[in-house]
């Protein structure tokens, strides 16, 4: 138990952040060291990528993705970023400003590049209008577009791996949701490192899965990374928020709950795949996937969901 000692566990100067789940408190330099160390552990233990590989980070202007880009650059990795401009009035411009500012002031001097994909340019409308046009919820339309564009950029620009800013809270909340509904088919794909299962799909990794949202926000504040605190106005993740709230209440009562829950799951998964060797995900995918007839990206149908979306949007446009 930490009493109200406010000194850094390591160097005894004044602490700025307590970490009950590690029974520690850190000053700024020691906290940064802790964060970098956790990410390095994630990268190595899950065989995410090596020092010579090219990484494409999916950035949104929020704390997690900007922190991820910052940490990878600090660790000396070759990390560029892609921002998908969704065209959401009052939000996209502000989040894009944060990304551009970071790219210009910090990433560019380190030799890193920001790529931007603008939804309106390719689809002729912003995400909200597009979703209305095809009669689908905004977030599911958005998900289809982002997944597609990140994968396309990674493949076309020849990155070895695509990294997203999912943190421990995201993964623990998702796991809780999947377990509560026994969504076993999703449990398969919940690891922090998904291999490039077939030609045309980039490898995907989540290097922040060992860090909590609070730790990542603290990392941004301490390192003066200016991120967008507001959420996307379309966000309706009421379920996710509820799961996160419940997990945080458990965490408060018994520090470490979130990491035991998610890391424990990963450990079980690792053991299982080591003993029984059922068809690996790559093998399963290979049997059901083939190239989309319009764009070539792997899909289970004739056209991929992105091409279907675009086709429906085009036919819905009144001429």
């Amino acid at each position: 138990m930490i009493h109200s000692s406010m000194n850094c566990t390591k160097c005894k100067t004044k602490a700025v952040m307590k970490l009950p789940r590690h029974n520690a408190a850190f000053c700024k330099p020691c906290f940064n060291h802790f964060v970098h160390d956790q990410v390095e552990k994630a990268i190595k233990s899950q065989a995410m990528f090596g020092p010579d590989e090219r990484i494409l980070v999916a950035v949104s202007g929020g704390k997690d993705s900007l922190a991820l880009w910052h940490i990878l650059l600090a660790l000396g990795y070759h990390a560029d970023a892609l921002y998908v401009h969704l065209g959401i009035a009052g939000y996209s411009e502000r989040s894009y400003d944060k990304v551009q500012y970071y790219a210009k002031m910090i990433a560019a001097p380190l030799g890193a590049t920001l790529h931007t994909h603008t939804v309106e340019q390719e689809a002729g409308a912003g995400i909200k209008e597009l979703a209305q046009l095809v009669h689908r919820p905004t977030c599911s339309t958005c998900g289809t577009i982002k997944r597609y564009q990140f994968n396309r950029a990674a493949i076309e620009k020849e990155y070895d791996v695509m990294a997203t800013g999912h943190n421990l809270d995201d993964e623990a909340a998702r796991l809780l949701g999947n377990v509560l509904h026994w969504q076993e088919e999703y449990l398969d794909k919940q690891g922090p490192s998904l291999p490039a299962s077939v030609e045309g799909f980039a490898k995907k990794v989540k290097p922040l899965y060992r860090l909590t949202e609070r730790e990542l926000a603290a990392y941004c504040v301490l390192n003066k990374i200016d991120y967008i605190v507001d959420e996307c106005p379309m966000a309706q993740g009421a379920k996710t928020l509820l799961y996160k709230e419940v997990l945080n209440r458990l965490e408060t009562e018994s520090p470490g709950t979130k990491q035991y829950f998610y890391w424990g799951f990963l450990e079980k998964q690792r053991k299982q795949s080591a003993t029984s060797a059922p068809a690996t995900m790559a093998e399963k995918d290979q049997t059901i996937l083939h190239p989309c007839m319009s764009c070539g990206q792997p899909t289970t149908a004739e056209s991929c969901s992105y091409c279907k979306l675009m086709a429906r949007a085009k036919s819905a446009v009144p001429h």
Binding site: M6, A25, K63, L216, G237, L241, E245
Partner: peptide, 30 residues
């Protein structure tokens, strides 16, 4: 809890003249 632009721990004593920001860190997403 952020005082001025410095992060403080939950043990920190805050005074009347302090400018404090309490920043939420949980995002809903999808």
């Amino acid at each position: 809890v952020i005082r001025g632009d410095e992060l403080v721990t939950e043990d920190e004593m805050l005074a009347d003249q302090d400018h404090i920001e309490i920043r939420p860190v949980i995002s809903g997403g999808t």
